[in-house]
Amino acid sequence: MSRTTRLAVVAAALSTVLLGGGCTSVVTGVPAADPAPAPTEGPGSDPVKWMDGVCTSLLTFTRPALKEPNFDGAADLPAIKKVLSDYLNTIILGVQQSRAQLGGVGRSPVTGGDETVTRINGVLSQLEKDIGTAKTKVDAADPNNPAAFQAALTDAQATLQKITAPDALADLGALPRLDKAAVKSASCQQLRSLTPGR
């Protein structure tokens, strides 16, 4: 047998073994899934679950913010002042809770998601400050001086009109994998229904 023929036979034998045709050993046991748990954050984790966490956190302040204050029964200026102050305080608390929940969603499964969440948190932080400023103006208003009270409310309203809420669905939707995940997230769909046009 020539050297070339021997090499061809060895190559054929190796090919057979590597492809499993020549394997004679038997592996006992039952096939099982990898026992390591799936990652709960970062690459490899579930983008739908992650997006659901982000949207759930934003719903915490969006719902109370969109619920207009009820002035029924507020028969005088002190009562109106209290209703408005309580309403603004509810939004501030909602923003604080949103930021806390947002901080607990874990690392994004998609590159760019963490940076977007950081930007959203920054907008929420500014939102909290701006609404706090409006509340301070309302709380300082003197209901015994109707003209001054009206001026203070107008000033507070002007502050509120300048506020920009985060558009998380648009920001995160710029990342295709997260955009698809948002469609499958119940919380993201609720957020979308509360903020039409976003």
Rank of each mutant, 00 (worst) to 15 (best):
T116W: 02
Q96L: 06
E115Y: 07
A141R: 04
Q96T: 02
V95Q: 07
D86W: 07
V117I: 07
L93W: 06
S125W: 08
I92H: 09
P78K: 10
A100R: 10
E115L: 12
G122A: 00
V110D: 11
V110N: 11
Q97R: 14
P78Y: 03
A134S: 02
K82T: 14
P109F: 07
T118K: 11
V138L: 11
T136A: 14
D139K: 02
K135R: 11
P78F: 03
T118V: 11
V83R: 14
T118G: 01
T136C: 01
A75T: 14
T133V: 08
V138Y: 01
R119C: 03
V95E: 06
V117D: 08
D139E: 15
S108A: 01
E115C: 11
G113N: 06
V95I: 14
D86R: 07
E128C: 04
D130F: 10
V110R: 07
D86E: 13
D86K: 11
A74N: 09
I92M: 06
T116D: 02
D139G: 07
G103T: 05
L84E: 04
I131E: 05
A75C: 09
S98Q: 02
K137L: 15
E128S: 14
T111G: 04
G106R: 08
K82W: 05
P78C: 05
L102E: 05
L124H: 01
Y87Q: 12
V110A: 13
P78D: 03
G112V: 13
I120S: 04
V105L: 04
G103F: 09
A75Y: 09
I120K: 00
T116Y: 01
E115V: 14
K137F: 06
I80L: 12
N89E: 12
Y87D: 15
N121K: 10
G106P: 03
S98T: 05
G112H: 00
I120P: 08
K81Y: 03
G132L: 01
K81T: 02
K129Y: 09
L84D: 02
A79C: 09
V105F: 06
A100T: 10
T118N: 05
V83L: 10
Q101W: 03
L127I: 09
G122P: 13
G104S: 15
L127C: 04
S125L: 07
V83C: 08
K135D: 05
K81G: 02
R107H: 07
L84I: 00
G112C: 11
G122S: 04
P109W: 10
Q126S: 14
K129L: 14
S85C: 11
R99Y: 11
Q101V: 01
G103C: 06
N121H: 08
D76L: 05
R119Y: 08
T136P: 00
Q101N: 13
Q97C: 01
N121W: 06
Y87K: 14
A134N: 00
L124N: 04
D76V: 05
D139A: 10
R107Y: 01
L102T: 00
V83A: 14
S125G: 11
S85R: 06
V117C: 01
A75Q: 13
N121S: 15
Q126K: 10
L102W: 03
G132Y: 01
P109Y: 12
V110M: 06
A141K: 03
A134W: 00
A134K: 00
E115F: 11
K137D: 13
L77H: 12
L88G: 11
K129E: 15
K129M: 13
G106E: 08
G132T: 00
